[in-house]
Design a binder for these strands. Sequence first.
DNA 1: TCTGGGGTCCTAGGACCC
DNA 2: TCTGGGGTCCTAGGACCC
Length: 426
Amino acid sequence: MLYTKNKIALVDCNSFYVSCERLFNPSIIKKPVVVLSSNDGCVISRSTEAKALGIKMGEPYFKVEKIIKTNDVKIFSSNYSLYGDISRRVMKTLRQFSPEIEIYSIDEAFLNLSLIKNENLLEYGNKIRKTVLKWTGIPTSIGIATTKTLSKAANHIAKKESSGVIDLINSKQTNQLLKQIKISDVWGIGRQLTNFYIKNGINTAYELKNISNSWIKKNTNVLGARTAMELRGIPCVSLEAFEEKRKNCCVSRSFGRKVTKLEELKESVTAHCLNAAEKIRNDNQTAKKITVFIRTSPFQKYNNYYANVKKIDLPIRTNDSIELIKQALIALKQIYKKGYRYQKAGIILSSLKDMNSYKKNLFSKVSNEEKRTKLMKAIDYTNFKYGRNALSIAQAGFRQKWNIKKQHSSKIDTACFDLLPAVRSF
DNA sequence: TCTGGGGTCCTAGGACCC
DNA sequence: TCTGGGGTCCTAGGACCC
């Protein structure tokens, strides 16, 4: 058969954050490199060389510190504005290759390749890789198949074998490849399902593919059944080319050191509210609910663990920073308990809706509503122009002693002219 | 000593209605 | 004493994703 209806490519950037750092720092090419999460807590991106040293994804830094030091592994604190910027360039490049693309995460996208002839798919995949590398400097891997789950699986193999592109549509070895994929590596199968499947003797993607659907439905849920169907080549998860607005907005951070005082928790919750409110204003949304949560470290077994959340239904739908902060601080006061060493605080704005569907509340308690809206616009504009937090409010704290650790930043900011690396001619 | 952050979807169970 | 049955909507918590 020459023509297949459903052809999906998953393009995934290789070691994305590491690759971004390498763009501006050629000296770390072909060297072991890792990027650390916020607070320099965990390893969240590894170069091939770092993987080969046995450094695992998500592992806390202090556990791999020894390997890192003895092998001279280069480390970077994460720089999300840089990664976001490079990501946009990659996605823009990918758009040239398909009328329909779903940006699935910061470093991957599904492309609809249904218009490409079967016999040309592999070549097309290679062309995509070459172009992205040439235009953005980012290496990618591509999996092509008839369903999203299969394209994920193909991508997994492509990455492992560093062959670049795996096309399952023309392959006669699909089953052979699925046998190589551990059940835990199948898209949609996490820790719980992995345990369950292994207990029942299902260890690979191939074995899951061949289990009866009724058994899966009975013992898991619709999602479990969907995954198995997709492995059989029956599309159950469609390509979502239209980007929906977010339904919740969460901002949270671990502290750079443990925090005990209510005053400091207030500062961080205030700062998180400012960030979250700016985000939803940017999307033209308003919130109807706000949740505040605080917790001590779940890893310190000998200290009392305490975690609590408080959700408040706002009197009126809003995206006004000051109103949101007011409510958040009320919630915080209710859950704060003295005598604990807090590790993290955060807020969630939920029941988000578009501004357009916003109706004025007759009993609105926010006075000077229009003035406030103008104030928020002025703050957003100033922060956009002069850098984040150019304007803040006093409650967010000026010193922010609790703020995060970031000791290994590359300090590259593609959005800030002064921080761009200089090219000199001699 | 030191363990990220931001999302989505599904499901069971409660509240409520007639 | 004995107290239905069926429907909707909402929410908290779990599982999963990157």
